[in-house]
Simulated assay, not measured.
Amino acid sequence: MAEDSFTLGGHTFHSRFILGSGKYSLTLIDAAVRYAEAELVTVAVRRANTKEKENILDYVPKTVTLLPNTSGARTAEEAVRIAHLAKALGCGDFVKIEIMRDSKYLLPDNNETIRATEILAKEGFVVLPYMYPDLYAAHALVDAGAAAVMPLAAPIGSNKGLATKEFLQILIDEIDLPIIVDAGIGKPAEVCA
C-alpha cells in the first residue's frame, strides 16, 4: 500500500487525524495522542497555563506538532496577538486561526480571518484558517498565504455532520491547498466520508 502523507508548512504528516485537546483531562492527552497516532494536536492558547503548576504543554508529547488556535479572538488583531503568545509559549510557528464574533452560532468571520492570515503568513507562520466554506473567501485565503483551509462541516458543537457537503466539494475541486474539514462532525462514518 502506498504511503498516504501530506505536507503543511514544510512538515510531512503521515496521519490525517488532527487531535483536539480541549475535551481531555490533561493526564489523558499523552495516551490519546499515542493511541490515535496523531501527529498534529490543537491547543487552545488560553488553556496553556490553566493553573500555577499545570500546563497543557507539559502533557502533549514532544513528538507531535502543536497547532495552537486563536479561540476567543473576535478580530484579526486579537488573533495575531494570540498567535504571537503561542509562539512565545513554545508552540512553534503553526497556528489555527479561529475568529468568531458571535457567541450563539460560533460561525467564523471570514473577512477578519483573511486579514489575520495575511499578517501572520507574512511573519512566517504556517496558517491554517478555520472558515465558513465560501469559494471566494477560500481564494482570498490562498492569496493571503494560508497553508491549508479548514472549512466547517456544520456549526461547532452541533454534531450535524456534513451539512455543507456540496460547498466542501466545491473547495476540494477549486482550491489548490489541503482542505481540512473541521467542526460539526457527528458520527465516525461522517469522518470517513
Rank of each mutant, 00 (worst) to 15 (best):
P61I: 12
D102A: 11
F167T: 03
A32T: 02
K122I: 01
S25Y: 14
I18R: 03
A79H: 12
A76H: 05
T75K: 02
I170G: 01
I179H: 04
P155E: 11
N111E: 15
E166M: 08
L107Y: 12
D134L: 04
A144H: 12
F125H: 06
Y59W: 09
G92V: 05
G9V: 04
T50D: 03
A48P: 00
T42S: 15
T117H: 05
L135M: 06
G20R: 01
G157Y: 09
A189V: 11
A121P: 04
A137Y: 02
P178R: 13
E39I: 08
I56K: 02
I18D: 04
P133D: 10
T50C: 06
P155Q: 09
T75L: 03
L120V: 10
H14E: 09
D58N: 15
Y24W: 15
P155Y: 07
F125G: 08
D93S: 15
F17D: 01
D143T: 13
G124M: 10
L26W: 14
D4H: 14
A147M: 08
P68D: 03
A44S: 15
S25V: 13
R34G: 01
I179F: 04
D182W: 06
P151I: 09
L66G: 06
Y24M: 14
M150C: 15
A189C: 06
V43T: 13
A189G: 13
A146T: 10
N159C: 06
K87P: 00
N159S: 11
C192V: 15
I156F: 12
A121T: 07
P61G: 12
A154K: 09
A146P: 13
F125P: 04
K122N: 13
E3W: 02
M100I: 14
L85Q: 03
M100V: 14
D30F: 04
A154V: 12
I119D: 03
E118V: 01
A83D: 02
V181D: 05
I172V: 15
E52I: 02
H11E: 07
I156Q: 08
L66W: 00
V60W: 01
M1P: 08
G10N: 06
T7W: 01
A32N: 04
M1T: 07
Y130F: 13
K23V: 05
T164P: 02
E174D: 11
E166P: 00
G10Q: 06
T63V: 14
F94V: 06
I119M: 10
H11D: 05
A121Y: 07
N110L: 04
L120Y: 07
L107D: 09
A140K: 14
S158F: 11
R34W: 01
P188E: 12
E77I: 04
I175A: 05
T7L: 09
N110P: 09
G157L: 10
G22E: 03
S71Y: 00
E98T: 05
Y105G: 00
V45C: 08
L85F: 00
I97R: 11
D30P: 11
N55T: 01
G90W: 00
A140L: 11
L135K: 15
G161R: 09
F17W: 03
L128W: 11
V33G: 08
G72A: 13
R101F: 00
A147F: 06
E54M: 10
N49Q: 15
F125M: 08
E54F: 08
M1L: 03
N111Q: 14
T117K: 05
Q169V: 07
L106D: 11
Y130D: 14
T50W: 03
A88P: 00
Y105T: 12
E118A: 14
G157A: 09
